[in-house]
Nucleic acid binder design. Structure first.
Length: 603
DNA sequence: GCCGCATGTCATGTT
DNA sequence: TAAACATGACATGCG
C-alpha cells in the first residue's frame, strides 16, 4: 500500500472515528500502531511471567530439598544444619500477619505448617507425594484426612482452599486461616484441584485468580499431571489405611470392588475416586447408578455444571452427621411440593442423615419396641422376611453399610439430644399445633420398622433414597440392583408409606390450618353480626325520630290550612297527599274511611 | 381400663 | 396410565 493510500485510509478512518464518537468508540480502536503496541506489551508481560514461573520453580526445588520427614512425629521439617536445629514450634508461632511489604510468611514456612498440621500416620505415604511435589501436600492431605477429621463439607469439589483440619491447635488454626488467605497458596490449591479433576475429565469453573492472566502462578501448577497429581505418587497402601473405617460404609461386594479399584486409583486418582474413598456407599451407589453411568457414557465436562455428580440427595446422603439444612432444601428443590410446610424435611429420617442411623436400639424406639427386640432379636426381621422365609444373617458390615447413606459408622455416640435439637429446629413452623417431643419421638418410631424390614431383606438402598428419590431415579436405581420380588415389593411399600406419611402430615397440617382459619372466620363473622345488630338498632332509633319529626311537621302544615270560611281542617277528616308531579292535595278522609268500612264489610 | 391426642398406615379418590 | 397427592378411616402407642 502506498503512502498516499495510507494517508487516505487514515483520513477515512478519522472520518469514521468522528462518526463513531457518538457510539463511544475510541480512536485507539482504529489505530493499528496502538494495537501493535499493546500486543507487544502483552508479549512482554507473558515473558516476564514465564521468567517468574521459572524462578519460582527453582525455588521450589530448593525448598523440597530442604524438607525432611521426621520419622517420629511424621511431620515434615526443614532440613536444618546440625549446628542450628530449628525448633518445630517456631513455625507455629510464625507471624502470619501481612506486613506492609507483603506476606510475612514465606512459602516454605507455609509448607512446613502444612506438614505439621498432618501427622505421620496420614503422611506416611505422603512422603512420596511430598518428595515429588510440595504443592501436592494440601491436596493429598485433604485426601488423606483421617476419619475423625471432617471430610469435605460438601461433596461438591470446590476449587477453593480446603478448610483447616479440626485437630489443629488454636494457634495452628489461626495460622491456617492466614495461610489460606495467601493468594499464592490459594492459587496452588486451585491448580492442584484442577489437575486432580482433569484426570477425570472434570473441569471446574476457574477462580478469578486463575482467570487473571497477571496472577502469579506457582511452578507446580504447571507441572504435568504425572508430576502434580498426588494420586500418582500416593501408593495404594494409603487407600487401605482407611479400610478400618471405611468398610462399614459399603457393602461387601462393593468393598471388594473398591479394593480392587485401589490400584486403579493409584494411577488415575480423580474426583470420582476421591469420592469413592470417603463416600463409598454413595459413590458406589450413585456412581454406579444414575450418575455413574453418566460419567461413563458421557464424561464430558459440559455435564458438570449442569448436572453435578452430586444431587441434593447426594448432599443429603453425604453429609455425615450434619444436619441437612435447607438446602434441603435442596432436597426440596427436587420436590416441588414447596407449598407443604412439612414435606420430607420434616420427616425425621429425611430431615437429617443422623436421624436415619438407628444403630442404637434405644434410639428412636419406643420402650415396647426395644423390649420386644431385646427379647426377640429376630423380630427385626419383619413380616416380610417371615413371609418369604429369608434367612437373615446379621451381617454387620452389610447391614450397617447399606442403611447409612451418611457413610457414618453406627457408633451411636449419644447424639440423641442433638438429634432432637435438630428436630426441634427443623420442625420449625411445625411446632404448632403438632409438634411436641412426643410427636418427634413417634416420628422416629415408625421409620426404623421399614429400616429393619429393608435390612432384613438386605435391600442395598437406603430407605431415605427409596422414599425421596424422584421416580425416574428411583426406577433407574431399582433396575440397577437385581432385586427379587420380595425386595421389590418391600421397596415399593416403603416408598408408598414414606410418601403417604408425609402426605398425611401435610394433610393434618392443612386440616388444622383450615380449622384455625375457620375459627378466625367465625370470630370475624361474630364481630360482623354484632356490628350489624348495633347498626340496626341505631337505624330503628333514627327512623323513629324521623317519623316523629314528619308527624309534627305534618300537623304543623295541616294546622295552617284554612277553608273559604277561615276554618281549619280537622286532621281526622282530611289528609294531605302528594301526587306524582309534586302537587299537594287535601283529600277528605271520609272516602278513605268509607272504603275501609266497605272492605271490612266485604270481608 | 378408658380417653384424648398424635402418628402411621391403608384404601380410595383426585390431580 | 402411572405417579404423586389428598383425605377419611382405622390402628397403635402414649400419657
Amino acid at each position: 500500500m502506498s503512502e498516499v493510500g495510507v494517508i487516505q485510509d487514515m483520513e477515512l478512518i478519522d472520518i469514521l472515528w468522528k462518526q463513531d464518537i457518538d457510539l463511544g468508540a475510541r480512536r485507539e480502536v482504529f489505530d493499528y500502531n496502538h494495537r501493535q503496541k499493546e500486543h507487544e506489551l502483552q508479549r512482554q508481560r507473558e515473558l516476564e511471567e514465564e521468567k517468574r514461573l521459572h524462578l519460582l520453580r527453582e525455588q521450589e526445588k530448593a525448598l523440597l530439598a530442604q524438607l525432611q520427614l521426621d520419622e517420629e512425629t511424621g511431620e515434615y521439617i526443614p532440613r536444618t544444619p546440625p549446628s542450628a536445629p530449628l525448633p518445630l514450634e517456631v513455625s507455629q508461632n510464625v507471624n502470619f500477619t501481612q506486613g506492609s511489604g507483603g506476606h510475612a510468611m514465606s512459602f516454605d514456612e507455609c509448607l512446613q505448617l502444612l506438614a505439621e498440621t498432618f501427622p505421620v500416620e496420614e503422611t506416611e505415604n505422603m512422603s512420596a507425594c511430598l518428595a515429588t511435589t510440595a504443592i501436592s501436600v494440601p491436596s493429598s492431605n485433604n485426601i488423606m484426612m483421617s476419619p475423625e477429621q471432617q471430610p469435605l463439607s460438601t461433596p461438591t469439589l470446590s476449587p477453593g482452599p480446603m478448610p483447616p483440619p479440626q485437630r489443629v491447635s488454636p494457634d495452628l488454626e489461626q495460622a491456617w486461616m492466614e495461610l489460606l488467605s495467601l493468594p499464592e497458596l490459594q492459587q496452588c490449591l486451585n491448580m492442584q484441584m484442577e489437575d486432580t479433576l482433569e484426570t477425570t475429565n472434570y473441569t471446574l469453573p476457574k477462580s478469578p485468580e486463575v482467570q487473571n492472566p497477571n496472577f502469579t502462578f506457582y511452578p507446580m501448577a504447571n507441572l504435568t499431571n504425572g508430576e502434580t497429581n498426588s494420586s500418582v505418587v500416593c501408593p495404594a497402601e494409603f487407600i487401605s489405611t482407611y479400610d478400618g473405617s471405611v468398610p462399614s460404609m459399603a457393602p461387601i461386594d462393593n468393598l471388594s470392588q473398591m479394593e480392587d479399584k485401589a490400584p486403579q486409583l493409584n494411577t488415575n486418582y480423580g474426583a470420582e475416586s476421591f469420592c469413592d474413598i470417603f463416600y463409598p456407599t454413595v459413590s458406589l451407589e450413585e456412581g454406579s447408578g444414575q450418575h455413574g453411568h453418566e460419567e461413563n457414557e458421557s464424561p464430558t465436562t459440559s455435564d458438570i455444571p449442569n448436572k453435578p455428580s452430586f444431587t441434593p440427595m447426594d448432599l443429603y446422603s453425604l453429609s455425615p452427621g450434619d444436619t441437612f439444612d435447607s438446602d434441603k432444601q435442596n432436597v426440596t428443590a427436587e420436590m416441588p411440593d414447596s407449598d407443604s410446610g412439612i414435606s420430607s424435611n420434616t420427616s425425621p429420617h429425611a430431615s437429617s442423615p443422623a436421624k436415619s442411623t438407628y444403630g442404637d436400639r434405644s434410639y428412636g424406639y419406643s420402650d415396647s419396641d426395644i423390649e420386644e427386640m431385646d427379647h426377640n432379636p429376630g423380630s427385626a426381621e419383619s413380616d416380610y422376611s417371615e413371609m418369604f422365609s429369608l434367612n437373615f444373617q446379621p451381617d454387620l458390615r452389610t447391614a450397617v453399610s447399606v442403611f447409612t447413606p451418611t457413610g457414618q459408622p453406627h457408633q451411636q455416640n449419644e447424639s440423641k439430644p442433638q438429634h432432637e435439637m435438630d428436630l426441634a429446629e427443623e420442625s420449625g413452623h411445625n411446632s404448632a399445633p403438632f409438634t411436641k417431643d412426643k410427636q418427634k419421638k413417634q416420628l422416629d418410631v415408625r421409620l426404623p420398622r421399614d429400616e429393619q424390614r429393608a435390612k432384613a431383606l438386605k435391600i442395598p438402598v437406603s430407605v431415605d433414597m427409596i422414599i425421596n428419590l424422584p421416580v425416574d431415579d428411583f426406577n433407574e436405581m431399582m433396575s440397577k440392583h437385581q432385586l427379587n420380588d420380595a425386595q421389590l415389593a418391600l421397596v415399593r411399600d416403603i416408598r408408598r408409606r414414606g410418601k403417604n406419611k408425609v402426605a398425611a402430615q401435610n394433610c393434618r397440617k392443612r386440616k388444622m390450618e383450615n380449622i384455625m382459619g375457620l375459627e378466625g372466620e367465625l370470630d370475624s363473622l361474630k364481630e360482623e353480626k354484632e356490628r350489624l345488630l348495633s347498626e340496626k338498632s341505631q337505624n330503628i332509633t333514627n327512623l323513629k325520630d324521623m317519623k316523629q319529626q314528619l308527624n309534627s311537621l305534618y300537623l304543623e302544615v295541616f294546622s295552617m290550612l284554612r277553608d273559604e270560611k277561615g276554618n281549619s281542617y280537622s286532621p281526622s277528616n282530611y289528609s294531605l297527599q302528594q301526587s306524582t308531579d309534586g302537587s299537594i292535595f287535601l283529600v277528605p278522609r271520609i272516602k278513605k274511611t268509607f272504603i275501609k268500612s266497605k272492605d271490612n264489610h266485604l270481608s
